[in-house]
Protein backbone atom coordinates (compact mmCIF):
# COMPACT_ATOMS: atom_id res chain seq x y z
CA UNK A 1 0.00 0.00 0.00
CA UNK A 2 2.73 2.38 1.03
CA UNK A 3 6.29 1.82 -0.08
CA UNK A 4 9.11 4.21 0.72
CA UNK A 5 12.68 3.86 -0.53
CA UNK A 6 15.60 6.03 0.52
CA UNK A 7 13.39 8.96 1.45
CA UNK A 8 15.06 12.25 2.35
CA UNK A 9 13.53 15.52 3.40
CA UNK A 10 15.09 18.77 4.51
CA UNK A 11 13.53 22.07 5.43
CA UNK A 12 15.25 25.27 4.48
CA UNK A 13 15.89 27.45 7.49
CA UNK A 14 17.23 30.75 6.33
CA UNK A 15 20.35 29.94 4.33
CA UNK A 16 20.87 26.55 5.97
CA UNK A 17 18.67 23.55 5.68
CA UNK A 18 17.49 21.18 8.35
CA UNK A 19 17.86 17.56 7.31
CA UNK A 20 14.83 15.92 8.93
CA UNK A 21 14.43 12.56 7.20
CA UNK A 22 17.68 10.86 6.36
CA UNK A 23 17.00 7.94 4.07
CA UNK A 24 13.96 6.02 5.22
CA UNK A 25 12.87 2.65 3.88
CA UNK A 26 9.43 1.50 4.88
CA UNK A 27 6.83 -0.82 3.49
CA UNK A 28 3.31 -0.91 4.83
CA UNK A 29 1.02 -3.52 3.37
CA UNK A 30 -2.69 -3.16 2.92
CA UNK A 31 -4.63 -3.77 6.10
CA UNK A 32 -1.73 -3.11 8.47
CA UNK A 33 -2.07 -1.15 11.71
CA UNK A 34 1.22 0.63 12.15
CA UNK A 35 2.39 3.22 14.65
CA UNK A 36 5.37 5.51 14.46
CA UNK A 37 7.10 6.29 17.72
CA UNK A 38 9.73 8.82 18.41
CA UNK A 39 10.55 11.81 20.52
CA UNK A 40 9.35 15.23 19.59
CA UNK A 41 11.18 16.62 16.59
CA UNK A 42 12.31 13.24 15.29
CA UNK A 43 10.46 13.72 12.00
CA UNK A 44 7.29 11.71 12.55
CA UNK A 45 4.90 14.36 11.28
CA UNK A 46 7.15 15.12 8.37
CA UNK A 47 6.98 11.49 7.30
CA UNK A 48 3.23 11.33 7.69
CA UNK A 49 2.71 14.54 5.74
CA UNK A 50 4.74 13.18 2.87
CA UNK A 51 2.80 9.94 2.94
CA UNK A 52 -0.38 12.01 3.04
CA UNK A 53 0.65 14.12 0.02
CA UNK A 54 0.39 17.22 2.16
CA UNK A 55 4.11 17.81 1.62
CA UNK A 56 6.73 16.72 -0.89
CA UNK A 57 9.88 14.70 -0.35
CA UNK A 58 13.27 15.69 -1.77
CA UNK A 59 15.01 12.43 -2.60
CA UNK A 60 13.85 8.81 -2.80
CA UNK A 61 10.80 7.01 -4.10
CA UNK A 62 7.32 6.90 -2.71
CA UNK A 63 4.67 4.57 -4.08
CA UNK A 64 1.09 4.97 -2.96
CA UNK A 65 -1.10 2.03 -3.93
CA UNK A 66 1.55 1.04 -6.42
CA UNK A 67 1.65 4.49 -8.04
CA UNK A 68 4.94 6.38 -8.03
CA UNK A 69 4.39 9.81 -6.53
CA UNK A 70 6.37 12.49 -8.30
CA UNK A 71 5.78 15.91 -9.71
CA UNK A 72 2.26 16.07 -8.39
CA UNK A 73 0.46 19.32 -8.86
CA UNK A 74 -2.04 20.46 -6.26
CA UNK A 75 -4.97 19.35 -8.35
CA UNK A 76 -3.77 15.76 -8.81
CA UNK A 77 -2.71 15.59 -5.18
CA UNK A 78 -6.20 16.72 -4.16
CA UNK A 79 -7.78 13.93 -6.18
CA UNK A 80 -5.45 11.27 -4.72
CA UNK A 81 -5.99 12.52 -1.18
CA UNK A 82 -9.72 12.46 -1.66
CA UNK A 83 -9.64 8.96 -3.13
CA UNK A 84 -7.04 7.11 -1.04
CA UNK A 85 -6.41 8.98 2.18
CA UNK A 86 -8.25 9.96 5.31
CA UNK A 87 -6.66 12.31 7.84
CA UNK A 88 -6.99 12.55 11.59
CA UNK A 89 -5.07 15.39 13.22
CA UNK A 90 -4.02 16.05 16.77
CA UNK A 91 -5.86 19.36 16.73
CA UNK A 92 -8.94 17.84 15.04
CA UNK A 93 -9.06 20.47 12.27
CA UNK A 94 -12.81 20.63 12.06
CA UNK A 95 -14.34 23.61 10.29
CA UNK A 96 -15.74 25.67 13.12
CA UNK A 97 -18.81 27.03 11.36
CA UNK A 98 -19.99 23.65 10.12
CA UNK A 99 -22.01 21.20 12.19
CA UNK A 100 -20.64 17.75 12.94
CA UNK A 101 -22.56 16.13 10.12
CA UNK A 102 -21.55 18.87 7.66
CA UNK A 103 -17.92 18.42 8.61
CA UNK A 104 -18.17 14.70 8.01
CA UNK A 105 -19.94 15.28 4.69
CA UNK A 106 -17.32 17.70 3.35
CA UNK A 107 -14.95 15.13 1.71
CA UNK A 108 -17.97 13.71 -0.11
CA UNK A 109 -18.72 17.19 -1.44
CA UNK A 110 -15.28 17.30 -3.00
CA UNK A 111 -15.86 13.82 -4.33
CA UNK A 112 -18.92 15.13 -6.13
CA UNK A 113 -21.57 13.26 -4.15
CA UNK A 114 -25.03 14.85 -4.10
CA UNK A 115 -26.17 16.69 -1.01
CA UNK A 116 -28.83 14.28 0.18
CA UNK A 117 -26.68 11.23 -0.15
CA UNK A 118 -23.75 13.09 1.35
CA UNK A 119 -25.64 13.97 4.52
CA UNK A 120 -27.14 10.48 4.78
CA UNK A 121 -23.74 8.80 4.51
CA UNK A 122 -22.21 11.32 6.88
CA UNK A 123 -24.88 10.57 9.45
CA UNK A 124 -24.21 6.83 9.15
CA UNK A 125 -20.56 7.41 9.91
CA UNK A 126 -21.37 9.69 12.80
CA UNK A 127 -23.56 6.93 14.21
CA UNK A 128 -20.69 4.55 13.73
CA UNK A 129 -18.57 6.72 16.04
CA UNK A 130 -21.59 6.96 18.36
CA UNK A 131 -22.21 10.65 17.75
CA UNK A 132 -25.56 10.37 15.94
CA UNK A 133 -27.33 12.61 18.47
CA UNK A 134 -24.62 15.24 18.07
CA UNK A 135 -24.96 15.55 14.31
CA UNK A 136 -26.31 19.09 14.35
CA UNK A 137 -23.85 20.43 16.91
CA UNK A 138 -21.01 22.77 16.09
CA UNK A 139 -17.47 21.64 16.98
CA UNK A 140 -17.21 24.08 19.89
CA UNK A 141 -20.17 22.35 21.52
CA UNK A 142 -18.31 19.01 21.56
CA UNK A 143 -15.68 17.61 23.92
CA UNK A 144 -12.16 16.85 22.69
CA UNK A 145 -12.90 13.15 22.39
CA UNK A 146 -16.10 13.83 20.52
CA UNK A 147 -14.32 16.19 18.14
CA UNK A 148 -11.73 13.55 17.39
CA UNK A 149 -14.46 11.00 16.71
CA UNK A 150 -16.08 13.45 14.30
CA UNK A 151 -12.70 13.82 12.62
CA UNK A 152 -12.36 10.05 12.39
CA UNK A 153 -15.84 9.75 10.88
CA UNK A 154 -14.80 12.45 8.39
CA UNK A 155 -11.63 10.49 7.54
CA UNK A 156 -13.66 7.33 6.99
CA UNK A 157 -16.56 8.70 5.03
CA UNK A 158 -14.92 8.42 1.61
CA UNK A 159 -13.85 4.82 2.42
CA UNK A 160 -10.17 5.57 1.85
CA UNK A 161 -7.43 2.95 1.58
CA UNK A 162 -5.32 4.49 4.33
CA UNK A 163 -6.12 6.39 7.49
CA UNK A 164 -3.30 8.71 8.53
CA UNK A 165 -3.48 9.89 12.11
CA UNK A 166 -0.96 12.37 13.54
CA UNK A 167 -1.06 12.02 17.33
CA UNK A 168 -4.84 11.55 17.34
CA UNK A 169 -4.83 11.11 21.11
CA UNK A 170 -2.30 13.79 21.87
CA UNK A 171 -4.94 16.21 23.09
CA UNK A 172 -7.10 13.68 24.88
CA UNK A 173 -7.25 12.20 28.41
CA UNK A 174 -6.68 8.52 28.96
CA UNK A 175 -10.30 7.31 28.82
CA UNK A 176 -11.05 9.14 25.59
CA UNK A 177 -7.70 8.00 24.26
CA UNK A 178 -8.84 4.42 24.75
CA UNK A 179 -12.12 5.00 22.98
CA UNK A 180 -10.37 6.63 20.01
CA UNK A 181 -7.88 3.77 19.82
CA UNK A 182 -10.71 1.24 19.97
CA UNK A 183 -12.28 3.02 17.04
CA UNK A 184 -9.09 2.89 15.02
CA UNK A 185 -8.67 -0.78 15.89
CA UNK A 186 -12.20 -1.45 14.70
CA UNK A 187 -11.49 0.34 11.44
CA UNK A 188 -8.38 -1.72 10.95
CA UNK A 189 -10.31 -4.89 11.67
CA UNK A 190 -12.55 -3.98 8.76
CA UNK A 191 -9.49 -4.09 6.54
CA UNK A 192 -8.40 -0.46 6.30
CA UNK A 193 -4.73 0.40 6.57
CA UNK A 194 -4.13 2.61 9.60
CA UNK A 195 -0.98 4.62 10.15
CA UNK A 196 -0.72 6.35 13.52
CA UNK A 197 1.86 8.71 14.94
CA UNK A 198 2.24 8.78 18.67
CA UNK A 199 4.80 9.30 21.35
CA UNK A 200 2.81 7.40 23.95
CA UNK A 201 3.99 3.84 24.55
CA UNK A 202 0.50 2.65 25.64
CA UNK A 203 -0.99 3.91 22.38
CA UNK A 204 1.68 2.29 20.26
CA UNK A 205 1.22 -0.99 22.14
CA UNK A 206 -2.34 -1.20 20.83
CA UNK A 207 -1.18 -1.27 17.19
CA UNK A 208 0.27 -4.29 15.39
CA UNK A 209 3.62 -2.86 14.42
CA UNK A 210 5.81 -0.14 15.87
CA UNK A 211 8.31 1.80 13.80
CA UNK A 212 10.73 3.81 15.92
CA UNK A 213 12.23 6.98 14.52
CA UNK A 214 15.21 8.84 15.92
CA UNK A 215 16.90 11.83 14.34
CA UNK A 216 15.40 11.07 10.95
CA UNK A 217 16.37 7.41 10.85
CA UNK A 218 14.37 4.25 11.59
CA UNK A 219 16.04 2.59 14.55
CA UNK A 220 13.64 -0.31 14.95
CA UNK A 221 10.63 -1.87 13.25
CA UNK A 222 8.90 -4.60 15.25
CA UNK A 223 5.59 -6.37 15.57
CA UNK A 224 3.71 -6.02 18.88
CA UNK A 225 2.09 -8.90 20.70
CA UNK A 226 -1.16 -8.43 18.82
CA UNK A 227 0.77 -8.08 15.58
CA UNK A 228 2.57 -11.32 16.20
CA UNK A 229 -0.72 -12.98 17.05
CA UNK A 230 -2.22 -11.80 13.77
CA UNK A 231 0.86 -12.85 11.85
CA UNK A 232 0.52 -16.36 13.27
CA UNK A 233 -3.11 -16.46 12.22
CA UNK A 234 -2.19 -15.86 8.62
CA UNK A 235 0.71 -18.25 8.46
Amino acid sequence: MIRIEGLHKSYPIGKDSLHVLKGLDLHIKEGEFVSIMGSSGSGKSTLLNIVGLLDEHDVGNYYLNGQLIEKLNEKKAAVLRNKFLGFVFQSFNLISYKTAVENVALPLYYKGVGRKERLKTALEYLEKVELGPWAEHLPNELSGGQKQRVAIARALVTVPKVILADEPTGALDSTTTDSVMDLLKGINDEGMTVFVITHEEEVAEQTDRIVRLKDGVIISDELTESGKAKAKQYV
Binding site: G52, L54, E74, K75, A78, V79, R81, N82, K83, F87, N93, L94, I95, L106, P107, Y110, K111, R154, T158
Partner: peptide, 14 residues
Protein backbone atom coordinates in the same frame (compact mmCIF):
# COMPACT_ATOMS: atom_id res chain seq x y z
CA UNK B 1 -6.25 27.06 7.81
CA UNK B 2 -9.76 26.31 6.64
CA UNK B 3 -8.46 26.10 3.09
CA UNK B 4 -5.73 23.74 4.29
CA UNK B 5 -8.35 21.49 5.88
CA UNK B 6 -10.46 21.56 2.75
CA UNK B 7 -7.45 20.67 0.64
CA UNK B 8 -6.52 17.79 2.92
CA UNK B 9 -10.07 16.54 2.37
CA UNK B 10 -9.68 16.72 -1.39
CA UNK B 11 -10.49 20.31 -2.43
CA UNK B 12 -8.74 21.32 -5.63
CA UNK B 13 -7.18 24.79 -5.73
CA UNK B 14 -9.75 25.86 -8.32
Amino acid sequence: KEFGIRKALGAKPG
